[in-house]
Simulated assay, not measured.
Amino acid sequence: MKCVKTQDAVGHVLCHDITQIIKDVKKGTAFRKGHIVTEEDIPVLLSLGKDNLYIWEKTEGILHENEAAEYLRDICMNENMIQSEVKEGKIELIAEIDGLLKIDVDKLRAVNSLGEMMIATRHTNTTVKKGDKLVGTRIIPLLIEQEKMEKAKEVAGDRPILSLIPFKKKKVGIVTTGNEVFYGRIKDTFGPVVAEKVKEFGADVIGQTIVNDDIEKITKAVEEFIEQGADMVLCTGGMSVDPDDKTPGAIKNTGARIVSYGAPVLPGAMMLLAYYEKDGRELPIVGLPGCVMYAKRTVFDLVLPRLMADDMVTSDDLAGLGLGGLCLSCDICTFPNCGFGKGV
């Protein structure tokens, strides 16, 4: 830091805030630290009584906050994102599309542990809309060692910490089971709920098949949708452990790979997730518990965005939903802007 005459400060970086006070009109910061002085600033600065300014001296190996902020941008930024302007050592990234936001949580923690810099993101596996803010970054001091920013790049590795995966246009088949529905004793109210949820992600429901509690017929209905080109099959009904609930066994009989029957989420503990291999692709088959029909938000709302983005869900992923997996059934639902399904 050195002191120079204000007229000689053009192109230099201020090392401190400069306050402007106009009686009964204004009291605030006219120029913030880190501001690069322009020719137009000189008269204003002189009017504020600043005949001299303290400016940053360029030193080899030392970065200004705005230069260092670009390191954090590069660590975070991926496809389908745009950046804000660099200001006071801060850069934000904005979603350019609707999609599924994923965060490398371990790398995020590692970079934030270095000190003098910060990256604050939304939760991982969050559904975002075009224009949503994804992350805010900031360099804490005005000046920082370049070596430290290079260390941050090394810790983050070759791949950005954030990724934004677009949702795929999927064809969905719905298999509804239950003697009470099949024989017309009650009206099906489950299928319409599920159809509405997948349509929110741009999916096409190619059909709904209603079958009775016959394990072979349920299996056949699932397989027929796959043959018709369904990218995903959702099964409603028959998902508890009662002897006449045949859906889990029917899904297993398709030969699909069972990821998990059960998830540590309430509502939604009885969900079954499986993947059926066809032509080199793994197509999700989901057995949905009855709560999806009447509860505002369930395990299905946590898993569906990932399925729509072709983001493979593992048994470990499901196990991790236990932390934050209790929906509080608030009178006014604010999901996804709440803790449900957020975990660490």
Rank of each mutant, 00 (worst) to 15 (best):
H16Y: 14
D17T: 13
D17M: 05
I18Y: 12
I18G: 08
T19R: 14
Q20R: 15
Q20H: 13
I21Y: 13
I22F: 08
I22Y: 12
I22V: 15
K23P: 10
K23L: 13
K23G: 00
D24W: 03
D24A: 04
K27W: 06
G28D: 11
F31P: 00
R32G: 15
K33C: 09
H35D: 10
T38E: 08
E39D: 15
E39M: 15
D41C: 13
I42C: 10
I42L: 13
I42S: 10
I42M: 12
P43S: 12
V44C: 05
V44Y: 14
V44S: 06
V44D: 06
L45P: 05
L46Y: 02
L46C: 04
S47P: 00
S47W: 01
L48P: 09
L48E: 11
L48Y: 14
L48K: 09
D51P: 00
L53H: 10
Y54H: 14
W56L: 11
E57L: 04
E57I: 03
K58T: 07
E60Q: 06
I62F: 01
L63G: 01
L63I: 02
L63R: 01
E67V: 07
A68C: 02
A68Q: 05
A68Y: 01
A69I: 01
A69H: 07
A69Q: 10
Y71L: 02
R73E: 12
R73G: 00
R73H: 01
I75R: 08
I75E: 08
N78Y: 15
E79V: 09
E79F: 09
E79D: 11
N80L: 13
Q83P: 05
S84D: 02
E85H: 14
E85T: 14
E85Q: 12
K87V: 11
K87W: 06
E88W: 07
G89N: 12
G89T: 08
G89P: 04
G89M: 05
K90I: 11
I91Y: 00
I91V: 09
I91D: 06
E92Q: 05
L93M: 09
A95R: 04
A95V: 00
E96S: 07
D98H: 07
D98Y: 06
G99F: 04
G99M: 05
L101W: 01
K102R: 14
K102Y: 04
K102H: 04
K102S: 11
K102E: 11
I103N: 05
I103G: 00
I103P: 05
V105K: 12
K107Y: 09
R109I: 10
A110I: 02
A110K: 14
V111T: 03
N112I: 05
N112Q: 00
S113G: 01
S113A: 08
S113I: 00
L114D: 03
G115D: 00
E116M: 14
M117C: 09
I119W: 03
A120T: 14
T121M: 10
T121E: 10
R122F: 03
R122L: 15
R122M: 09
T124Y: 13
N125D: 08
N125Y: 12
T126G: 02
T126H: 15
T126A: 14
T126Y: 02
T127H: 08
T127E: 14
V128T: 07
K129G: 02
K129C: 03
K129E: 06
K130Y: 03
D132H: 00
D132G: 02
K133R: 11
K133W: 07
L134E: 02
L134C: 02
V135C: 12
G136S: 14
I139V: 13
I140D: 07
